[in-house]
Simulated assay, not measured.
Amino acid sequence: MRLPDFEAWAIFAHVVEQRSFSAAARALGLSKATVSKAVSRLEERLGATLFHRTSRTLSLTETGRALAPRAARVLTEGQCAEEDAADAALSPRGLVRLAAPMTFGLERVAPALPDFFARYPDVTVDLHLDDRSVDLVEQGFDVALRIAQLPDSSLRARRLAPIARHTVAAPAYLARHGRPTHPAQLADHRCLSYTNLPTDVWRYTGTDGSEIAIRPQGPLLANSGEALLHSVRAGLGITVLPDFIIDADLAAGRLEAILTEWRWPPIALHLVTPPGMLRPARVTALIDFLAARFSAKT
């Protein structure tokens, strides 16, 4: 299939509008020879003459008159497309697909979106919440927020803020079963496990650099940190959750942090986008908003 010569059609429309090859060339910033060659190229493709040319006059042939309105529409559509794109660059509009972890999306991203829409009322956000990592390219996402230690990949990643994880339990559980002071003692406790981690092993590092790994056992495994929260509040066991899920419970005394001298491997909130440098203005607007909202704080 051979594509239409859109440039030649647009130049033909300009010649018709200007009623002169020379005037069309000046309007387009092209040489008269370039304009003439484009029209000749179009005539050759069509197998028909578009203009009667003499040294003093230029007039449309019957074919030229029939095709001139169509050429004008081609030119107008192209101009409108570029003007719309330029307007969008000044005032972002259109759809942006955003992926985020489930609880972080519910607790932090969704409450922030009204402020974004107040600034950009013509942008629509398709928010996809899932603790599993989506394939941005294959699934067509423009932006993703991820909480992890990110592996090397072709994606573009921007670190926004550290995420602290805490080992916690309800005061009632600790009163009944005792407070562990070393990760090895977790083997004697009921543990509630988050299953979207890369491994089912809990790894701790002490203040002296010593490391220990334990495999938790307990009555509940879930792929949602928020789902674990209800059971740990009820005193069913010990769990490890990020600060944005448990900060309110810690402040209210519903949960207590334990093993505070032992650290988990560091993770952070990242903003991830597909490879490539060019982005629509609507995507850049959302990226800048999220970075400003969540950088160095969660």
Results as ranks from 00 to 15, higher is better:
232 V>H: 08
97 R>C: 12
136 L>A: 08
236 L>N: 06
251 A>F: 02
79 Q>R: 15
286 L>Y: 07
148 A>T: 12
186 L>A: 10
70 R>T: 05
112 A>C: 13
239 T>C: 08
114 P>D: 05
88 A>I: 05
167 T>H: 04
204 Y>V: 07
109 V>D: 02
185 Q>C: 09
275 P>S: 11
175 A>F: 04
105 G>L: 08
80 C>E: 14
150 L>M: 13
209 G>A: 14
17 E>I: 00
130 D>I: 00
88 A>E: 14
179 R>W: 05
91 S>N: 13
84 D>M: 14
42 L>I: 04
19 R>H: 13
243 D>V: 01
163 I>W: 05
83 E>P: 00
23 A>R: 15
23 A>E: 14
4 P>D: 09
181 T>I: 06
135 D>L: 04
292 A>N: 11
205 T>C: 05
189 H>F: 06
66 A>C: 05
296 A>E: 13
159 R>A: 14
261 E>K: 04
148 A>W: 13
23 A>K: 12
116 F>R: 04
218 G>Q: 03
143 V>S: 02
220 L>Y: 10
16 V>I: 08
250 L>M: 12
179 R>D: 12
156 R>P: 00
152 D>G: 08
261 E>T: 10
197 L>I: 01
294 F>M: 11
291 A>K: 07
208 D>V: 03
193 S>F: 12
212 I>N: 01
241 L>N: 02
212 I>H: 02
125 V>H: 11
134 V>E: 09
122 D>P: 00
293 R>P: 02
240 V>Y: 07
245 I>G: 07
146 R>C: 12
274 P>M: 06
227 A>G: 12
196 N>W: 11
192 L>H: 11
213 A>E: 15
297 K>D: 14
73 R>F: 09
65 R>M: 11
144 A>V: 05
251 A>Y: 02
193 S>P: 00
205 T>W: 00
246 I>E: 03
84 D>Y: 12
230 H>L: 15
189 H>L: 10
